[in-house]
Design a protein around this nucleic acid. Structure first.
Length: 729
DNA sequence: AAACTTCTCCACACT
DNA sequence: GGAGAAGTTT
């Protein structure tokens, strides 16, 4: 006990200490960037245990990423040792998934349900649309997916929408949504939002289950509270309303997940939700220099809807924030590399001291190329995730299917991978047979006589059925690593890739072996050796989870992924209007403010030096974009910034034309499309009915030229010059 | 009916 | 520059 008090005195400031020791009512701790948020959370948990306020197995701490959860676990293990093992620490999704494993049958699901990600959702939607005879032109599957997502973020399931005239919906949308939920249940699968909504449904229909968890989780702590959505709020509220032992930590200025359903009102109106709540503020920043902090503070003051607070530091003034203007995106990349090298040399820094942050994943490639040219080691977080790769998804589909044989989406994925002579037509027949008889595709595969397929194909299907039946059976008997190894060998997937000989196949094979190694490692380190447990874990992985700061490499990632991290030197690339703030967020005040918070999050990642770069033009798959510096830059106070112009110039005009050609190799060349025509790519034009737009491609020339234009609101039109009646702007 | 080839569309951020 | 749909060949 004494040693713990010592820790408190040594490491916590007064504000932190007060927040840690408070225990009278629900509490909200506003923890600004770099104010020691994690320290307060972990110290609070340690405090609760050591002062016998709550034993570890009755404490629940919820985070948004596995990385944050693991960090908390590790820190606590160091602080309190062995008893930290009994703590319940996890992400919202993993905790909900666990709750559902125990009580899924109350909702008509089975314990071994699958978790569907984006791609699985889209596949399911396509499958349903095909059955309904709706073309993908009428309804874009991805768009429909986001409709489902939005509905579920508001906790509106089909049955809620159906009866509620407040939410009138097109008949088709409604039917499709209902069908989607039905199909999920048939496949014994849930999407990410279901994971959050369904526990609440169980709490409602089976109060004894809620009571059970209220007993189990007597003290609830929530990290990044500003990111909670409606379901997550209700979840926390339901658990905490019994004992009223609730501590949430967050920062409204770092709320950047509105598009994922996060409701900033949850943190701003905490007091309305919990009237006896006490508010704490941590405003001393231990991370950044005065210049960086002043810059960030000044920017965020432009936001309308925020709790009043102001970060301060007694650290050094530091270098001014460097704003760097570059002629183009390629030059921006070169300039960042140049500054990096200079900085490494002069300041004696390591590669791992740097991070390059950006708004969109698409920006990473050109930055990557710049680093690779010079040979600087880097690591990229996000982009195409390992678990999103086709070959990995295929393998995962094999595993998921074996654990949950009703998983119709997974079985469709693997039925002809590697090609085993079961083609589209056969698949369609099996599928409609399954639908007609209300059975799973797997079950239908066991009834080939009935389905009505040719004898040759039938043999192939039967062989496949025998194979997978065996592994459904083995999935619970063998250890995960053994199971996966034998399974993959017998499916012929490994051999198929080995014999293929292409570079792509070799690469895919390598990735699959990496996955198998991952499974082996999981079986060695985790408590459970079941393949099912491994699947659940990776289904809930985030991009950042696997990132660590070991290894001397520069980190590249999106601004979103960077939340919670810090680096001595930070670059934010592409600080341009249209990119940051993003074009889709400029119109509305709320979304513009969220972009500003995103910028704020990025800035406050920097400890010593901050570079903001922008390019005057940017190449994209559809042409050249001429850009203007971000409006946020004009909000920066001059006394903390230095303005630079890149000294690197584009070398020869021809090289750059060639590059443009290369990146558009599938269409006519850049020159053909633009030269000799009065219409130029990138040019802004006015149209009588569509308004102002930007030319993205030109085919042919003169009056008969076909011009593709993106008009306001992302409307894309292909027009013939002589009829279009365009005027240059 | 299956395998192979070309075309089209797409990327804002992520559990 | 990648995935899946649509189209073409065997």
């Amino acid at each position: 006990m004494d040693s713990f008090n010592k820790i408190l005195e040594d490491k916590l400031n007064v504000a932190q200490k007060t927040a840690v020791e408070y225990n009278e009512s629900p509490q909200l701790i506003f923890a600004g960037a770099g104010s020691g948020k994690t320290r307060v959370l972990t110290n609070k948990i340690a405090f609760l245990i050591q002062h016998k306020i709550c034993p570890p197995h009755h404490i629940l701490a919820v985070t948004f990423t596995n990385k944050a959860a693991n960090e908390m676990k590790q820190r606590l293990e160091k602080m309190i040792g062995h008893s930290s093992k009994f703590l319940n620490i996890g992400t919202f999704h993993s905790i909900c998934a666990r709750i559902l494993r125990a009580d899924a049958e109350k909702l008509g699901f089975q314990q071994m349900y699958s978790i569907y990600d984006d791609a699985d959702q889209v596949n399911l939607i396509k499958k349903i649309m095909k059955r309904f005879g709706i073309s993908e032109k009428e309804i874009h599957p991805r768009q429909f997916r986001s409709f489902i997502e939005k509905s579920k973020q508001k906790m509106l399931l089909p049955e809620d929408v159906q009866e509620n005239p407040k939410y009138p919906l097109e008949r088709t949308y409604l039917n499709l949504y209902g069908e989607y939920q039905k199909e999920l249940k048939i496949a014994n699968a849930m999407d990410f939002n279901d994971l959050l909504i369904y526990p609440l449904k169980i709490f409602e229909s089976h109060p004894e289950v809620l009571v059970k968890y209220q007993k189990r989780f007597q003290y609830v702590l929530v990290d990044e509270y500003q990111d909670t959505n409606m379901a997550q709020f209700r979840f926390v509220e339901s658990l905490a309303k019994k004992h009223r032992k609730l501590a949430v930590v967050g920062d409204d200025d770092q709320s950047i997940y509105g598009w994922r359903g996060a409701d900033i009102a949850n943190i701003l109106q905490f007091k309305e939700h919990f009237p006896d709540a006490k508010i704490f503020k941590l405003e001393q920043n231990y991370r950044s220099t005065k210049n960086i902090l002043t810059g960030a503070n000044t920017i965020i003051l432009n936001n309308q809807n925020r709790a009043e607070k102001s970060l301060w530091t007694d650290g050094e003034i530091g270098e001014p924030i460097q704003v760097v203007q570059c002629d183009g995106d390629r030059i921006e990349s070169d300039e960042i590399v140049r500054i990096l090298q200079e900085n490494i040399f002069k300041q004696k820094r390591k590669f791992s001291d740097f991070a390059i942050l950006y708004r969109t994943n698409a920006q990473s490639r050109i930055l990557e190329e710049g680093l690779r040219r010079i040979g600087i080691p880097y690591t990229i977080v996000g982009g195409i995730r390992f678990y999103d790769r086709k070959e990995i998804k295929d393998v995962m589909a094999y595993l998921k299917f074996a654990v949950n044989p009703k998983d119709n989406i997974s079985i469709k994925r693997i039925i002809n991978v590697p090609p085993r002579g079961i083609g589209r037509t056969t698949q369609d027949r099996i599928e409609s047979y399954a639908e007609k008889h209300g059975i799973s595709i797997f079950e239908a595969l066991g009834n080939t006589e009935d389905v009505g397929i040719g004898l040759v194909t039938k043999k192939k299907v039967d062989a496949f059925y025998t194979l997978i039946t065996k592994f459904v059976d083995l999935s619970t008997r063998l250890n995960g690593d053994e199971f996966a190894q034998i399974y993959l060998e017998e499916t012929g997937l490994l051999k198929y890739l080995q014999n293929n000989g292409t570079e792509l196949a070799a690469n895919q094979l390598e990735n699959i072996h990496e996955l198998l190694n991952g499974i082996t490692e999981f079986c060695q380190t985790s408590e459970s050796k079941q393949i099912a447990q491994f699947i659940e874990e990776v289904s809930l992985y985030t991009d950042i989870d696997q990132w660590n700061d070991h290894g001397n490499q520069i980190t590249l990632m999106t601004l979103h992924s960077a939340k919670g991290l810090e680096f001595p030197v930070v670059f934010i690339a592409g600080v341009e209007d249209g990119l940051l703030p993003h074009i889709q967020s400029i119109e509305k005040q709320e979304s513009l403010d969220e972009e500003r918070r995103l910028f704020y999050v990025g800035m406050t990642r920097a400890r010593q030096e901050l570079f903001l770069t922008y390019a005057m033009k940017r190449y994209s798959y559809d042409g050249v974009y001429y850009t203007t510096p971000s409006r946020f830059l004009s909000e920066l106070p001059e006394n903390v910034t230095a303005m630079n112009y890149s000294k690197i110039k584009e070398k020869v005009k021809t090289t750059y034309c060639k590059e443009v050609k290369n990146s558009h190799s599938h269409s006519s060349t850049f020159e053909e499309r633009s030269i000799g025509s009065e219409w130029k790519i990138g040019q802004f034009v006015q149209h009588r009915t569509f308004g102002k737009g930007k030319i993205v491609s030109v085919e042919g020339n003169g009056d008969s030229a076909k011009i593709s234009i993106i008009f306001h609101g992302n409307i894309r039109k292909k027009l013939i010059a002589k009829y279009a009646n365009l005027t240059p702007v």
